[in-house]
Simulated scan of single mutants.
Amino acid sequence: MKITSQEEYGFRILLRIARCKENESMSIQALSVAEGLTMAYVAKLTRLLRKAGYINSTPGNIGGYVLARPASEINVNQVLKSLGGALFSKEFCGTYSGAMRFCNNSVDCSVRSLWQMVQFSIDQLLDKVSLQDLIGTEKKSENLLSNLFQAHLQLLKDAEAVAL
């Protein structure tokens, strides 16, 4: 599995905007320099983020982009899905049907079960992370995410115990 460049760079741009001080914005040029991306690519990514409702543009000479809502209200899972989509969705099987109109495994597919479980696990973890959780240092984020992951593992163990 890979995270696309659009997801990675789009998310990094959103995070950089989130780190701006109150009443500050970042221009496409400033984002381009800060992330080492072309201005055209930054413009494309900011357009996607703006259409998804995560950022707003500010007009004027010192205009740029600001968060459309507080970082604590921006869910990481939803941001990544708006930039590239889910790893697995209901349309997945139709996309990989080979030369046939329908997948020849559409009735009984053990692989589909795997992708559904992977997507479920990713959603469960990323739904608990906000943009605010990632604004601090790497160490702070690492601690927070480690705690979330440990809690996620405990929930899975508890669910497994109940199922048995």
Rank of each mutant, 00 (worst) to 15 (best):
K2D: 05
K2N: 10
I3A: 12
E7D: 09
I13K: 01
L15K: 10
L15N: 02
I17V: 14
A18H: 04
R19S: 12
E24T: 04
E24Y: 07
E24N: 09
S27Q: 03
I28L: 13
A30G: 07
L31I: 03
L31V: 10
S32C: 05
V33I: 15
L37A: 14
A40K: 12
Y41M: 03
V42R: 01
A43Q: 12
L45M: 11
T46E: 03
R47K: 15
L48W: 07
L48Q: 14
K51I: 13
K51E: 15
A52N: 00
G53R: 03
N56W: 11
S57R: 13
S57L: 07
S57W: 09
G60E: 00
N61C: 11
I62L: 15
I62G: 15
G63Y: 07
G64M: 08
Y65F: 15
Y65M: 12
V66I: 13
V66M: 05
V66R: 02
V66Q: 06
L67S: 05
L67N: 02
A68D: 05
P70N: 06
I74D: 01
N75L: 04
N75G: 03
N75H: 08
V76F: 03
L80T: 04
K81F: 03
S82Q: 10
L83C: 01
G84H: 14
G85E: 00
A86T: 07
L87H: 02
F92W: 14
F92T: 05
C93E: 09
T95L: 05
S97D: 02
G98F: 10
G98Y: 07
A99V: 06
M100F: 14
F102Y: 12
F102N: 08
F102D: 13
C103N: 08
N105M: 06
S106V: 06
V107Y: 13
C109R: 05
V111T: 04
S113W: 09
L114I: 14
Q116R: 15
V118H: 12
V118N: 06
F120L: 12
F120E: 12
S121W: 11
S121K: 14
I122W: 10
I122M: 13
D123K: 00
L125W: 01
L125V: 08
L126S: 06
D127Y: 00
K128M: 05
K128I: 02
K128T: 03
V129Y: 09
S130H: 07
L131P: 01
L134W: 09
E138R: 08
K139T: 11
K140E: 14
K140R: 15
S141H: 05
E142P: 01
N143K: 01
L145P: 01
L145W: 06
F149E: 12
F149V: 13
F149A: 14
A151M: 00
L153R: 07
L155S: 12
L155F: 09
L155V: 04
L155T: 10
D158I: 01
A159D: 08
A161H: 06
V162Q: 07
L164E: 04
